[in-house]
């Protein structure tokens, strides 16, 4: 509390309050305005269903339906990374919010963290609905392994994934229209290399190894191994090793986000591009 009677947060408290302030509209918006349910869950279910029927048309074993359903649910997170993390600061710049973030005392890194927390809740809700509806519709049965390990894999995957999203947000900040096009470009090619609709080992060792830079590749592979234990040949790498690599990726991406943000903010300020609006 200062002389004016206004409470002023500092240090970690300022960081946390800023992050929460940015996460708040995403979390509250998810539950307050429910019209998204129609578009943002029906649409992925339709896409998922199409791939399920392809497997049925070629008489694939029933587990493949489960692979598609789990991959289809995880798409919610990837789309959230592309459109609500990576592109977000670019949108904010376009709408005039970014300048408000910059002149406020809250750290921009905390804003990125808030975007990630809010986005995780938002897309987690969507993914859960898609998974539940698709599981029910297509009669998927799971033979689960260790549930605590499954929980750990999911959390570490999300940490790495949203760390990547935070880093992309910083990089996209200096982009113009390219940001939109890059996000658009990173959909189907990533669904392909990360094995959203089939076990990633199908694209070969080196292909899967290169795709492992995208945290969802290993995360999805480990989750499938833990949900469909009936097929021991399914996985690309052992779950423990995938969990370790994901933890390393999480550290790299979150630190990368911090460094990229500082560097690009400096470049943006110097070149006067931080809050310019180009259409």
């Amino acid at each position: 509390m200062n002389d004016t009677g206004i409470y002023k947060a500092k240090g970690f408290q300022l960081f946390w309050r800023t992050a929460w302030a940015r996460a708040y509209p995403r979390i509250v918006g998810t539950f307050r305005e429910r019209s998204w349910l129609f578009f943002e869950t029906l649409l992925p279910v339709l896409g998922t269903a199409a791939y399920v029927f392809v497997y049925r048309a070629i008489n694939a074993p029933p587990d493949y339906t489960g692979f598609v359903v789990v991959g289809g649910a995880m798409i919610a997170f990837w789309l959230n990374i592309l459109w609500n993390m990576a592109s977000q600061l670019y949108w904010d710049k376009d709408m005039g919010n970014l300048e408000l973030y910059i002149i406020s005392p809250g750290p921009v890194m905390a804003i990125l963290m808030g975007m990630a927390i809010g986005g995780l809740v938002m897309s987690g809700t969507r993914a859960l609905i898609i998974l539940t509806v698709s599981t029910f519709l297509f009669g998927v049965t799971y033979q689960t392994g260790s549930l605590p390990l499954l929980g750990a894999v999911f959390l570490v995957t999300m940490a790495a994934l949203y760390g990547m999203g935070m880093m992309f947000a910083s990089l996209f900040l200096v982009s113009g229209r390219e940001a939109w096009h890059i996000s658009n470009l990173l959909q189907e090619p990533v669904y392909l290399v990360s094995g959203f609709y089939f076990p990633v080992k199908a694209i070969g060792f080196w292909g899967a190894a290169a795709a492992s830079l995208i945290p969802l590749t290993l995360g999805l592979d480990a989750i499938r191994q833990l949900l469909f234990t009936g097929d021991p040949t399914l996985g690309f790498l052992p779950v423990g090793m995938e969990l370790g690599i994901l933890a390393v990726l999480a550290v790299i991406f979150i630190n990368g986000a911090r460094l990229a943000l500082a560097r690009l903010e400096e470049i943006g300020r110097r070149e006067g591009r931080l809050i310019e609006r180009r259409r």
Binding site: Y51, V54, Y55, I58, E188, Y191, L192, F198, A202
Partner: peptide, 21 residues
């Protein structure tokens, strides 16, 4: 940019097909 997305889309189906068959 114009070709990557459609090509990836069709390659997903090719891999799905080849995994099963």
């Amino acid at each position: 940019y114009s070709i990557a997305r459609p090509l990836a889309g069709v390659m997903i189906l090719v891999v799905m097909y080849s995994v099963v068959t």
